Simulated scan of single mutants.
Amino acid sequence: MSQILILDDEPAILQSLRRLLRMVPCSYGNQSFELEIEAFSSARAALARIEHTPFDLFISDYRMPEMDGVSFLKAAKACQPDACRLILSGYADLNALLRAVNEVGIDRFIAKPWNDYELVSAIAQSLAHRELLLENKRLADLMRLDCGDLSPADMEAHLLESIEPGITKVHWGPDGSVILDPASLKNGE
C-alpha cells in the first residue's frame, strides 16, 4: 500500500484527485500500486501529519496562501527524504519550476489542468523509481555491512528509519533525559 499526501488549497481539486486516484489503476511496467490517499488544504496541517506518518509520495499545488509548494516540499523532504515529490500548478512560472528542481529535487512538475493518464502514470513511475532507489540503498547497506564499513546496529537503524521516518532521531535533554516534544526546547520550557 503506497501512502500519498495531496496538498492543495482548493477543495474541488482535492476531491477530483481523490476520485481519480480511487478509480484509475496505478501501474508501471509489471508493478501495480494500491494507493491510500490523505488530502489536506492546509500546509501546516499536512506538515504536522508528516511528522508522525510515513508517506511514499507528496503531491502539492504550487501557489497556496499559507506556504508555496516548494517550501512545503522542502520541509517534507527534510522530514522524509526518501518520499517522491510532485508539483501541480496552473501557473507556468519558469523560476518556480527551477526552484522546485534545484531546492527540492521534484520528480515531476505537472500543469493544471492535468491529463488523467499522464498524472497517474507520473505517480506510478515515481513510486516505481522510489522502490528501486530504496532497494539500491538496502543492497548498498548490505555491501557496507559485509565490508565492515557499517555495523549491524547502524544497518538496523537505517531499516527502522525507512519504515518509520524520525524514529531514530532522539532529542536529549541537558540532564540526559529524552525529550518527547523538541518544540519545548525552543520555547524554553
Rank of each mutant, 00 (worst) to 15 (best):
L88E: 03
G90E: 15
Y91P: 03
A92C: 13
A96G: 00
L97S: 10
L98R: 10
R99K: 12
R99D: 09
A100S: 11
A100V: 05
A100Y: 05
N102Q: 14
N102M: 13
F109W: 15
A111E: 12
A111Y: 03
K112I: 09
N115S: 01
D116I: 05
D116C: 05
Y117N: 06
Y117T: 14
L119F: 04
L119V: 06
L119W: 02
A122N: 13
A122Y: 14
I123F: 08
I123V: 15
A124Y: 10
Q125R: 12
R130L: 11
R130M: 15
L132S: 15
L132R: 11
E135N: 09
N136E: 09
N136I: 08
K137D: 08
R138A: 13
L139W: 05
L139Q: 11
L139R: 12
L139N: 05
L139G: 03
D141S: 01
R144N: 11
R144Q: 11
R144P: 08
D146T: 07
D146L: 10
C147M: 15
G148H: 04
G148E: 06
L150K: 11
P152Y: 01
P152R: 02
A153P: 05
D154V: 00
D154Y: 00
M155E: 00
E156W: 13
H158W: 07
H158E: 10
L159K: 10
